[in-house]
Design a protein around this nucleic acid. Sequence first.
DNA 1: TATGAATGAGGATTCATTCAT
DNA 2: GATGAATGAATCCTCATTCAT
Lengths: 223, 223, 223, 223
Amino acid sequence: MAVNPTRRRGRRPQRGRKRPNSPRPRTARQSERREAILAAALEEFSARGFAATRLDDVAHRAGVAKGTIYLYFHDKENLFQELIRSQLSPVVGSLQAALGTDRSLREVAEQAAEVFLREIYGTRRKDVIRLVISEGPRFPQLAEFYYREVIARIIAALRPMLQRAVERGELRAGAVIRFPQLLGAPGIIAIVWNALFGKIDPLDARAFVSAHLDLVFGERKAP
Amino acid sequence: MAVNPTRRRGRRPQRGRKRPNSPRPRTARQSERREAILAAALEEFSARGFAATRLDDVAHRAGVAKGTIYLYFHDKENLFQELIRSQLSPVVGSLQAALGTDRSLREVAEQAAEVFLREIYGTRRKDVIRLVISEGPRFPQLAEFYYREVIARIIAALRPMLQRAVERGELRAGAVIRFPQLLGAPGIIAIVWNALFGKIDPLDARAFVSAHLDLVFGERKAP
Amino acid sequence: MAVNPTRRRGRRPQRGRKRPNSPRPRTARQSERREAILAAALEEFSARGFAATRLDDVAHRAGVAKGTIYLYFHDKENLFQELIRSQLSPVVGSLQAALGTDRSLREVAEQAAEVFLREIYGTRRKDVIRLVISEGPRFPQLAEFYYREVIARIIAALRPMLQRAVERGELRAGAVIRFPQLLGAPGIIAIVWNALFGKIDPLDARAFVSAHLDLVFGERKAP
Amino acid sequence: MAVNPTRRRGRRPQRGRKRPNSPRPRTARQSERREAILAAALEEFSARGFAATRLDDVAHRAGVAKGTIYLYFHDKENLFQELIRSQLSPVVGSLQAALGTDRSLREVAEQAAEVFLREIYGTRRKDVIRLVISEGPRFPQLAEFYYREVIARIIAALRPMLQRAVERGELRAGAVIRFPQLLGAPGIIAIVWNALFGKIDPLDARAFVSAHLDLVFGERKAP
DNA sequence: TATGAATGAGGATTCATTCAT
DNA sequence: GATGAATGAATCCTCATTCAT
């Protein structure tokens, strides 16, 4: 009956830990190691989830000793949170840039979709988003961080743009204005769908996102 | 050495436990216990995820001894899977029923949204869906089950209806036809959003779903 | 690396238990059940040893419920001991009979060997002897019982016979007189050898025992 | 609920433990620990058998933590097998040496008996042999190992020697030639007898083995 | 710094024994 | 009497964390 050999014990999650480890290691070598550990952690956490990931495996994959992880991160939880933080913040800039231009709404939306497909969906970052979705409820701090650093910023960048679009008559002052989340929905769905059903019934993320834009803005005339 | 010569095992001799003196037949009590365990498992798994959940806690919450779980489920994994199965299968019927009626597409969609809000979003079943999303990638069989028993059936029920809608001119033969997933997207997003950010920035699922319908079908004339 | 799936927990052995259960159940049906349980226990204990045997399996094999075992035996240990007792006592009589005759020593020895081969080596009783060897050190009571009821009796029956043989000039007053154990040695060795190496390098017990008699008495002239 | 927020794991912060400040290189200490664990395992396994032995007890007796055992051995079974292997392999050499000399058969046999008495019967190795006898049937690999590494080698060393003895007229080409096992029989019997009945009726192993040699080769002229 | 051996609390699972039916 | 569901102590094994080297 065993479905999968992932039976692992876990430590109970979450408490108000407050000692953020030093944000910037001194030497280049150190910073390299930190990166190696984070990269390894990304692989392992996204393959198994927080509780089932063994620091042993992370260390092995990063090519360092287990104890070394503790020189860079306070504990497993801190490593996990640092991982999420380090991966998500950079994208926000790109998205903000894409949303900041002054072209037509449709063009901007396509631009943003492109950024999403290239920088998130096409990379390991999609796994980070899955991790946030999976583990967030047990890591309120993390969810909050994600909300503040990613979601809120994107929505903040979105609002004036949508406002302008309404003023220009490119958009009715309706659903999307009230719930800008609707714009990002298909991206998230594509990530989740393919993580679950990618093997059985893969979803073409680009086409899916594109179809959604058609839905919001009406079909494009000619590509 | 310490060979304790009086190590005892077995049922403890009745210490003010709930009088099991009930006249109910054995099978009724058994199925009640099974349900109690599943209910407890739902609480625990959705609060902590698969790996971090302790069967000890499940047992305690269900009011049974640890060993009792093993009378009803082969192991932790099996309990988890049975939980998912038992929770999701029933809903599909309701959704199929909602989708099977012959009214206008908009009406049908609103009906389905209603079922979703009432039977999934308004119940613990939303947590089950979160569990599938979180743990599915590590439990391929589970994802497959979910796909076969839930997703595929809903999509199968959806297609002819959408086809009819196109024929009737209620829908353009575009995005939604190719990707019926778009219809369910906001439901999933609402679940995920509120699990993560419900405390910080709650999302009104009903309004959200409704706004999405406006997006797909155009604003309703009069509310 | 796993050699065998016999990892099982055990209860610590042995204490001066003193409540021998009723030696003779009332009805025929009861006595039948008791026998069935003992027969099943023989199978299971000799396949797995005391600690690794599950009463569940014994019950199943005996076609009774687990609780029923406790109607006939105090506990696992008592079942085990009763099993040994019930199996060994009967043979002693046959051996004593074989040894009691007044023929030549060689003939008597061959007679006894025949009894051994037929009633012990050729039956499940050889497994009982293996059990005594394996578990005896942890069940001093059992070893003592075995010594008293089996070993001592056989030796007692042997001594006068050997004495007579010496007087008749059939045997030198040497090794065998001082250590009658030497006569039984090959029987035990055959049991142990085949239990361990029977698959790899089987030992023909009859030939082996016979060769040993040749050693003790000199080759036979003509069969 | 009870999410203990301070559950700690890992090495406890040094409470008056044996100063590990030794200058010994890591490997020496490791091999010492391995030995300590094996020694403890020998005690425990031979006192209780495989199934009833607790690794907890082994660890305690070895003066290490439970987890440490798993640094040296894959699991309980592996520990058990390594124990057998490590104990038995060395003896074979001594026995082969004793059997390889070119003296008279009787002398060689006495030499071998001496080695057995000193290196097996006089040490814990007799318990290892008991363990093989007791647990071998449930650990076929182990029985096979024992056969290959011990039994087969001894028999292989024995055959040419016996052959020579026949040629020299020291032995009739009979029982012992066909069944060299007969030579070792009393050693095994002595081990088993004393393990079972040593308290009640101890058997003088040296005299017993010696008596057996008298049986095989005829009484010695003068002691 | 970096290492990785050592620790031991934690948790899944088993199974002898009890007892309501 | 017989049953077998329920119990929970027992025990294997894991792995986050520490710290001597």
